[in-house]
Simulated assay, not measured.
Amino acid sequence: MKPPHPEKSLFRQNLLGIFCLVMAIVALGLAVIPGIAFDRPPQPFVVNEPTALQPPISPSETTGGLTLRYKGLAVNFGGKTKPAEPTTAEAAAIEAAAVAKESQAQRDHMLKCFMLAAAGCSMLALVCGPFAWVQEKQPAISGPAMLIATVALTWQYIAFGIAVGMAIAITLLICGAFS
């Protein structure tokens, strides 16, 4: 014989908290794994890498005019300058530098997309977390979910993560005062 009012399963009672926990774990994964895969440190710890050295500019050929020279310095008046053709090694170095720069730009764009997706997932978990905390009988799931989401944001930007953490703390204090 069935009981007249079957209780909800544990999964259904904590559905919003579990959703927040899954979103927070996805956000942390999106914040950490792409940076490791692309061999880039977290955003606050990025060191400006020195730019690739440009190949030296080929000396130009000057025709006509008056050229004054003094200790390696040459000044030409009235002549026409025609750039010298780059050698094959210089042309290959210029092409390799352009390919590396384009590859780095594409990698940075992909990292930015992952960073925005991580921030979006963690903000979703942080917005739903206080509601799960207040609605559910067992807030033990939504608390760690909000903590993990805050860690995911902090992984990206220290100041942004601190600000969001403070906003969550204030929200929890307000929710606690009204319950």
Results as ranks from 00 to 15, higher is better:
135 Q>P: 00
134 V>Q: 12
107 R>D: 14
160 F>R: 07
108 D>Q: 13
97 A>P: 01
120 G>T: 07
145 A>P: 03
95 E>C: 05
77 F>Q: 02
135 Q>D: 10
141 I>H: 03
75 V>Y: 03
115 M>C: 09
142 S>V: 02
140 A>D: 07
126 L>F: 02
136 E>K: 06
91 A>S: 10
139 P>N: 02
83 P>I: 03
136 E>Q: 12
95 E>H: 06
126 L>V: 03
133 W>E: 03
129 G>H: 01
95 E>W: 02
116 L>P: 00
147 L>Y: 09
113 C>R: 12
102 E>A: 15
124 L>T: 09
132 A>Y: 00
138 Q>W: 14
92 A>R: 07
105 A>Y: 10
93 A>P: 06
80 K>Q: 11
112 K>C: 02
100 A>K: 13
122 S>K: 03
130 P>A: 07
80 K>S: 13
118 A>V: 04
133 W>V: 04
119 A>I: 10
154 T>C: 07
95 E>F: 05
104 Q>G: 10
115 M>H: 09
100 A>E: 07
106 Q>K: 15
158 I>D: 11
91 A>V: 02
132 A>V: 01
127 V>M: 08
81 T>I: 11
134 V>N: 06
123 M>Q: 01
153 L>F: 10
80 K>I: 11
160 F>V: 11
108 D>K: 12
128 C>L: 04
146 M>N: 05
155 W>F: 15
104 Q>M: 13
106 Q>E: 15
80 K>V: 12
88 T>N: 11
128 C>M: 06
149 A>E: 07
115 M>I: 06
136 E>G: 08
141 I>V: 15
137 K>M: 07
149 A>T: 08
160 F>N: 08
92 A>V: 09
168 I>T: 14
151 V>Y: 10
114 F>W: 04
129 G>I: 01
154 T>I: 01
112 K>T: 10
87 T>S: 15
154 T>L: 13
93 A>H: 04
88 T>S: 14
109 H>C: 08
167 A>M: 11
151 V>I: 15
120 G>Y: 00
104 Q>A: 15
80 K>P: 02
109 H>P: 02
117 A>L: 08
118 A>C: 05
103 S>C: 09
75 V>R: 06
168 I>A: 13
160 F>K: 06
99 V>R: 14
122 S>N: 04
133 W>G: 00
144 P>T: 05
119 A>F: 04
156 Q>Y: 10
138 Q>R: 14
78 G>Q: 08
85 E>P: 06
161 G>V: 10
164 V>F: 14
165 G>H: 11
140 A>R: 05
159 A>C: 00
144 P>D: 09
138 Q>E: 14
79 G>S: 01
158 I>M: 12
149 A>F: 04
82 K>P: 04
114 F>I: 01
82 K>T: 14
78 G>F: 08
86 P>M: 01
82 K>D: 09
107 R>W: 07
86 P>N: 02
162 I>M: 14
82 K>V: 14
97 A>N: 15
161 G>W: 07
141 I>G: 05
134 V>W: 10
121 C>L: 05
98 A>V: 12
85 E>Y: 03
82 K>S: 12
94 I>F: 13
129 G>T: 01
99 V>L: 14
167 A>G: 08
120 G>A: 11
89 A>K: 14
87 T>H: 05
156 Q>D: 09
123 M>N: 01
87 T>I: 00
118 A>G: 04
95 E>Y: 02
